[in-house]
Computed example of a mutant assay.
Amino acid sequence: MANRGAILRGRGPAVFSSTFIDHIVHVHPLVAVALYLPVIVVAAVASLDQAGPLALVGWAVGGYLTWTLVEYWGHRIVLHFEPEQGWGAWFHRIVHGLHHDYPQDSRRSIMTPLLSVPIVGTALVVSIVVLDLPSMYAAGFVLGYLAYDLIHLYLHHSRPKAGPMKWLHELHMRHHFRDDGRGFGVSAPYWDKVFGTAISRSRRAAQ
């Protein structure tokens, strides 16, 4: 997949003619915190009598690692599936295309609820209802998602000078400005190493 080339500044255009609907689809970043932090707290508290402390930590880590795989493969397969026309092209524009065109638009730096609500809801139902896992697993999954959203927002609207965030920022900017067909792990870029989609320092989009 070739890089888009033209990067537009400012706020992306509305997707829907209705301002109300458009503000539901692309929300302020604090909406994600308001939606999912209570889910994390409730799931964690509900799990306290379901297993011992060390086991609960293990379940939380397992949920988090599951999220990182969903993040990687969802970004690679779903968000970067780009039909040229029809419903698929429209859907891609809403959920990810405008973010690549307007990377500094904070409303498009977190995942649209069109995707996040079904993802989180499915994780809760499958892990708690279907598999009957301790709800700490779901808490770890949702915490991983929320951390991803906030890290992604931070990487687009800051210039970290050192530490892990500088590393993540550098890797994600390569995805945006060098080769958007690689570098799909935003909060967990180690999966790019595992699955062969890492962007090296010297790599160019034309390669």
Rank of each mutant, 00 (worst) to 15 (best):
I119D: 02
L35M: 07
G140W: 07
P118R: 14
V41L: 10
I21N: 04
I21Y: 08
V42L: 14
V142W: 00
A55E: 11
A46S: 12
S18V: 11
V186I: 15
Y148A: 03
G196R: 13
V120T: 06
E84K: 12
V61N: 01
P53H: 07
G181D: 05
D179I: 08
V31T: 14
F16W: 08
R201T: 12
L48F: 06
A34K: 07
V130R: 01
V41W: 09
D49V: 03
F91P: 01
P164Q: 11
V194N: 06
V42F: 14
G181R: 10
P189K: 09
A162R: 13
G163A: 08
I199Y: 03
W191N: 11
V129R: 02
G74T: 11
S202A: 14
R178Y: 10
S158F: 08
V39P: 03
V61H: 01
T19L: 15
D49F: 02
R11N: 11
Y190N: 06
Y154F: 12
P189V: 10
V41N: 09
V78W: 02
Q104T: 14
S18Q: 13
H156L: 01
T66H: 01
G140K: 04
D149C: 07
A51G: 00
A162C: 02
W191T: 12
V117S: 05
T19G: 15
V27S: 05
H96S: 03
V186K: 06
S202Y: 15
V126W: 01
S116Q: 03
R174I: 00
L56A: 04
F141W: 00
S106N: 11
G62H: 02
T122N: 00
L98R: 02
L54W: 11
T112Y: 01
R11I: 14
A89V: 04
T197R: 08
G5K: 03
I151F: 02
G10D: 13
A162N: 11
I40L: 09
N3Q: 07
P160Q: 03
T112C: 00
P118T: 14
R182C: 09
V41Y: 12
A162D: 11
R203W: 13
V78S: 00
V78A: 09
P13M: 14
P134Q: 05
F177D: 09
V186N: 05
V41R: 12
R182N: 08
Y154H: 11
D105V: 12
H172Q: 13
W59V: 04
P164Y: 11
G183M: 07
V126T: 03
V57I: 15
I128R: 06
D105Y: 08
V45I: 15
P53W: 10
L30F: 07
Y148N: 08
R178N: 12
D22F: 09
R178I: 10
S200G: 15
K161S: 12
H92S: 03
G121N: 03
P103N: 05
V39E: 06
F16S: 07
H26V: 13
A34N: 10
H26C: 06
L153T: 05
P113V: 09
L153A: 02
K193P: 06
T122F: 02
E82W: 10
I24D: 08
V117H: 04
F91M: 05
L56V: 04
V95S: 00
Y64E: 10
S202M: 14
S135N: 01
P83E: 06
I7C: 01
D101P: 00
V25Y: 01
A123G: 10
L124D: 01
V31A: 13
L115V: 14
A89H: 13
E71Q: 09
R178M: 10
V186L: 10
T122V: 03
G52N: 04
A139T: 09
